[in-house]
Design a protein around this nucleic acid. Structure first.
Lengths: 148, 148
DNA sequence: TTTCTTATTGCAAATGGTTTTCATTATCAT
DNA sequence: ATGATAATGAAAACCATTTGCAATAAGAAA
């Protein structure tokens, strides 16, 4: 798949430079289907590019979230976790979180049906509260099979 | 409304003591409709009971979350916020969060489809992933009227 | 290609919410 | 009333994340 990646334009428009660390980080995010933390990304980057510092990871993630390229999640384990908003590896999904062991399951079941409802709800909420809604997240909390 | 409060049994069953700080904290949570942070609760407690320390607030909240009496939320402002899971003041609701100013709006006026989908999805997910689901949270992210 | 402006980076130090340690206090079963 | 021990408060420790600043590099202009 040649040509510039899909996020390229978002950088240009906002006047941000396409630097090596940023490309590497985006590469990692686009190749995983996990919810990586800043440190995990740092370690992954560090294997091939030891010169990149943890600070850059944090600053880049902050930028990516701001540009709407990445979602930031809190699953309750004391650190933020990040996912691309769009990629081959990441279809739109919601989360099932175990309160005991912290396991997170992505599910896409009924996502279409959910999406229809959410579209409708978003439209209603946008009007009622005069809110410009960009995205949503759904978390179900409970106990996984091993922890019951 | 006389008699012991609804959470009393949960304490007893788990062998936890009903102490003054715990009663005060639960009192505050049951009288508010806001999403209070640990520090806000501390300050509120402190006005009438200056002897209660911040540490106790944290430990109590941790216990309450564990007992399922309180929900812990992360709205992205760098601190956790807490709400009773059940009370006169708190009906089940979802959140609308402004990415810019951090304002959080609760909404409870669900449309029928919304309820149906959640009931259905919850049931199916429980079976498919053998998860015992206790609750869910829904966050819509966007820009509020003032921040657009 | 070379130059120049300035956004970006790395390191170290600072921040700040939350947790831990430990001696003291208070709950509640006996 | 008493005793076992859960709970508490104060201070210190933790640790994910942010900030200050001098050095570096992206990308527009020449």
């Amino acid at each position: 798949m040649p040509g510039p990646p899909w996020w390229y334009g978002k950088f240009q428009n906002a006047g941000h430079r396409v630097t090596l660390p940023r490309q590497i980080i985006l590469g990692i995010l686009s190749r995983t289907s996990k919810h990586l933390s800043a440190e995990e990304i740092y370690l992954s980057v560090h294997r091939t590019y030891p010169a990149v510092g943890l600070t850059t990871i944090y600053r880049t993630l902050q930028l990516l979230v701001h540009l709407g390229i990445v979602f930031k999640f809190d699953f309750g384990d004391g650190r933020s976790r990040y996912e691309l908003t769009a990629s081959q590896k990441q279809k739109h999904h919601h989360h099932l979180i175990c309160r005991r062991c912290g396991r997170v399951i992505d599910y896409t079941d009924f996502i279409e049906e959910e999406r229809e409802v959410f579209n409708k709800v978003e439209k209603i909420l946008s009007q009622k509260y005069n809110f410009k809604i960009n995205n949503h997240q759904v978390h179900f909390y409970g106990l996984c099979d091993k922890c019951q």
